[in-house]
Structure formats: C-alpha cells, structure tokens
C-alpha cells in the first residue's frame, strides 16, 4: 500500500468518525449541511483509496525526516504558548526567540552571534511593542511584564 492510499484510508476513517458524531446536533436542519459534506468527503476519500490501490504510482524516495528539529520546535512552541498568559507576550516572545536560536542554532553559538541575537530580538519585540501596544493600543496577552 503506498502513501496516498493510506492517506485516502485515513480520510475515509475520519469521515466515518465524524459521521458518527453527527447525532449530537439537536436540530435536524442544522445537521443537514455537515452531513452532506461528510458524505462527499467520505466518497472522495474512498475514490482516492481505490485509485491508489488499483493504479499505484511509483513514489520518489523521501529524505529522512528531521524529527529532532521539528519535534524540538514543537515542544518549545508549546512551552511558549503556556508561558504567554503567565509572563506576558513581550517577555515570552523574547525568551522564545532566544531559546529557539540558542538551542537550534547551537552550532553557530558564539558570543558575537549571541549579542546580535539578543539585540535583534530586543529590537524586534520593541518595534512590535511601540507600534501596536503604544500607538494603536492593540491588546496582547498580559502577564507580569506589560
């Protein structure tokens, strides 16, 4: 089974699960539109599954997926989001930026580079702050620091 066939299967299963949850909608008229879409989606997925089962296309080899880099960033972003409402947008963003560049850019870490990163992120958050919080009064998540 090639990749696209699996994708088709996953979409088909997803449609089935969503169809099963339709029951929670009390008003029958409100369920009509989602039902139509889910059925269409299921049909399209089945079509895709069949197409790739019956006529599999040869697929290019993919380079190994950089799990550590992408997964690492994912974790850092989760922490960043969790911190947002605790320490406030500007401080959290500054910390996030420094963490990402220091951990992911470990190989490039020199004093000079770090200084430029600190300066860069300070200027970046300062511009955001002045432009939006001061001039336009756009709200950002508030925390300890502004």
């Amino acid at each position: 089974m090639n990749r696209d066939a699996i994708v088709g299967l996953v979409c088909l299963v997803m449609s089935a699960v969503l169809y099963a949850t339709l029951g929670h909608i009390e008003e029958p008229r409100a369920a009509a539109f989602p039902r139509t879409i889910i059925i269409t989606m299921g049909a399209l997925s089945a079509l895709m599954l069949l197409q790739h089962l019956l006529f599999p296309k040869p697929q290019a080899k993919q380079s190994p997926f950089p799990w550590i880099r992408v997964g690492g960033l994912f974790v850092i972003i989760i922490v960043y989001l969790a911190l947002l409402e605790v320490v406030g947008f500007y401080l959290a963003s500054f910390l996030f930026f420094m963490t990402v560049v220091c951990i992911m850019g470990f190989k490039r870490l020199t004093v000079k580079q770090t200084v430029s990163w600190v300066l860069g992120s300070v200027i970046f958050t300062a511009i955001l702050f002045i432009l939006f919080s001061v001039l336009l009064e756009v709200q950002t998540p508030r925390g300890l620091l502004i």
Binding site: M98, C102, L109, V111, T114, V115, V118
Partner: peptide, 8 residues
C-alpha cells in the same frame, strides 16, 4: 555559552 548564562 557565556552569553547564555548572562542572559539567564
């Protein structure tokens, strides 16, 4: 790594 410590 000095910069890092300083920053912390």
């Amino acid at each position: 790594m000095k910069g890092n410590k300083l920053f912390t």
